[in-house]
Design a binder for these strands. Sequence first.
DNA 1: ACAAAAAAGGACAAAATTGTCCTTAATTAA
DNA 2: TTAATTAAGGACAATTTTGTCCTTTTTTGT
Lengths: 141, 141
Amino acid sequence: MFSKACEYALKIMIYLCSVEEEQKLAGLKDVAQAIDSPTAFTAKILQKLVRAQLLESLRGPSGGFKVVTRQISLLEVVNAIDGDRLVTGCVLGLKECSGIHPCPVHDKFMAVRDHLNGVLSTTYLKDLRGGVITGNRFLRM
Amino acid sequence: MFSKACEYALKIMIYLCSVEEEQKLAGLKDVAQAIDSPTAFTAKILQKLVRAQLLESLRGPSGGFKVVTRQISLLEVVNAIDGDRLVTGCVLGLKECSGIHPCPVHDKFMAVRDHLNGVLSTTYLKDLRGGVITGNRFLRM
DNA sequence: ACAAAAAAGGACAAAATTGTCCTTAATTAA
DNA sequence: TTAATTAAGGACAATTTTGTCCTTTTTTGT
């Protein structure tokens, strides 16, 4: 469904949102440890999220990453890493797939995609913090 | 959502189902042309579908491929090529993600996946033949 | 029997994705 | 000011996915 990089990105964002107490920054190693991901690869994804303006970063000692202040939906994270192909592209890969030129499963999947899009666009990181903080939801294993 | 190979596989199956008039076989070139896919790569996918017993093949002149007689759901095609990861695996990639050890989006995506699974398991190739035959649904472009 | 046609299958090639390593730039604290 | 710390970023490596090519096997029609 999502690329590995996107899976990491979602976990990164949820994690950073859940530790964001007192504007504290989390460093690369913290993040990679928290979500059980390869450190160097995680750094690349963090960079992308910063460039997409979903994260802010600071260098130097006591530097690190934190989530930007505005609310962020899962869709924004997915779009930043995987683009909008999952939500807007044809499931059979047709370049041109629309009401006037539909693939054979166009209608059948329309509903699924709307459902997916709905969940992604109405679920915000802040909605997911709680479970991680209380230890009822997990980002690794 | 699906791998490229799986997209081709779905188109292959729908196409073969829609030309299956009088038990006629379609050859590799017919198939690749119909779904606008690279011929040699298409051959590999056809092989997989034969081994998965979703297709039957015959060699020699007038040989080719045809869909097995029983009804086939989209889920069977997807499982044959991509496995069941899409429908059964954790969207965040956790090895162990369940009710007692859920990822932060476990519940949110449960519904989407059930929806997806429902569409895949209750849509049969025969349900999709008509549109392709009448030219109202397209397998290429 | 023989030539032609078609799938089967092995080996390889290209591209994309995932992952690593090392250097550079920025910042902080002493 | 200097050393330590941390993100930024370039280059490269490994793996997976996608795609190609060529030979072999099977079957058909003559």
